[in-house]
């Protein structure tokens, strides 16, 4: 998307909705939480587009997405809830007896669990880098921190993941 163009809300939802949902799912680890968060992000985008000034659209979008996650995390800290186990594995479409798919599913679960064990700042940096595919500069802009901090968070996050998975 060019810097000059101001997209419509529908265009944003079509183009980024899936990535926003995956970002939300990897950060929260739950389908319903990810859906709530994605809806909140798209709502903020709809409101924000009215006053959006052409510039780095993706920087703007991921700042909104990231802020929605942080706000939701703070809200939950004030009103803690116990999430129900998320047993929906339909995206993989595992058939009974498919050993390889089952092993992959377990591995995915382990990776997701290790991700959820990371402190929020590290989890956010790692997901924006490895799941969303942003550069360090883009992550720094979204999170409002220096690039050196992003570099440190990503490396420490990956080190913790590795220690937990091994």
């Amino acid at each position: 998307m060019t810097d000059e163009a101001v997209p419509s809300w529908e265009e944003v939802a079509h183009r980024y909705g899936r990535t926003i949902y995956n970002f939300a799912y990897r950060l929260t680890g739950h389908r319903d939480d990810a859906l709530d968060l994605s809806q909140e992000v798209l709502l903020r985008v709809r409101k924000g587009l009215r006053s959006y000034q052409p510039g780095s659209f993706e920087g703007w979008l991921w700042r909104i997405t990231r802020n929605a996650f942080i706000d939701e995390t703070r809200r939950r800290k004030r009103r803690p809830t116990v999430p129900l186990p998320d047993d929906d594995r339909s995206p993989l479409g595992v058939a009974p007896g498919a050993d390889e798919a089952l092993a992959a599913m377990r591995l995915d679960d382990d990776i997701q669990a290790a991700l959820l064990a990371l402190p929020i700042e590290f989890r956010e940096a790692v997901v924006l880098c490895d799941v969303v595919g942003l550069t360090y500069d883009e992550i720094a802009a979204a999170a409002g921190v220096p690039v050196g901090t992003v570099r440190s968070r990503i490396h420490r996050g990956r080190s913790m993941m590795r220690a937990r998975l091994s």
Binding site: H14, Y25, P91, L107, D108, D130, S159, R162
Partner: peptide, 27 residues
């Protein structure tokens, strides 16, 4: 350490891309 970091990075990048539930996206 480089090898261990690369393994964690690969693991994260191998996570499947999930489809959003119906109703999230317009249409």
């Amino acid at each position: 350490e480089l090898e261990a970091t690369a393994a964690a990075r690969t693991a994260l990048r191998s996570l499947p891309v999930l489809d959003p539930p119906p109703g999230l996206l317009p249409g």
